[in-house]
Simulated scan of single mutants.
Amino acid sequence: MSDMLKGQLLAGKRALITGSTSGIGLAVARAMHAEGAQVILNGLGDADEISKLQSELDAEFNAANLLDPAAIETMMADIGNIDILVNNAGMQHVSPVEDFPTDRWDAIMALNLSAPFHTTRLAVPAMKKKGWGRIINTASAHSKTASPFKSAYNASKHGIAGFTKTIALELAQTGVTANCISPGYVWTPLIEGQIPDTMAARGLTRDEVINDVLLAKQPTKKFVQPEEIGALAVFLCREEAGNVTGANWSIDGGWTAE
Rank of each mutant, 00 (worst) to 15 (best):
D212N: 15
A64Y: 03
E98Y: 08
V124S: 09
N87W: 00
F223P: 00
V97C: 09
R14F: 08
S51D: 12
G193E: 11
K6H: 10
G133T: 07
L85A: 06
R238C: 12
A200N: 14
L111A: 03
N154T: 10
M75V: 06
L57D: 02
V86Y: 06
A70G: 05
A37Q: 03
G19V: 08
L215C: 07
V86I: 12
V28R: 01
G246Q: 03
T177V: 05
V97Y: 07
L85N: 00
A89L: 06
G253S: 06
T205V: 07
L57N: 05
E240K: 15
I24S: 03
A231H: 11
R238K: 13
W105Y: 10
G36N: 09
A231M: 02
G43S: 04
A107F: 02
E228F: 01
T205I: 13
I40T: 08
F117E: 05
D212R: 14
A200P: 00
D68F: 04
A141P: 00
R202F: 09
M1R: 10
A34C: 07
S114A: 08
A201L: 13
P196W: 10
M1N: 09
W132D: 05
V234T: 12
H93P: 14
V97L: 13
M127D: 04
L204K: 09
P189C: 14
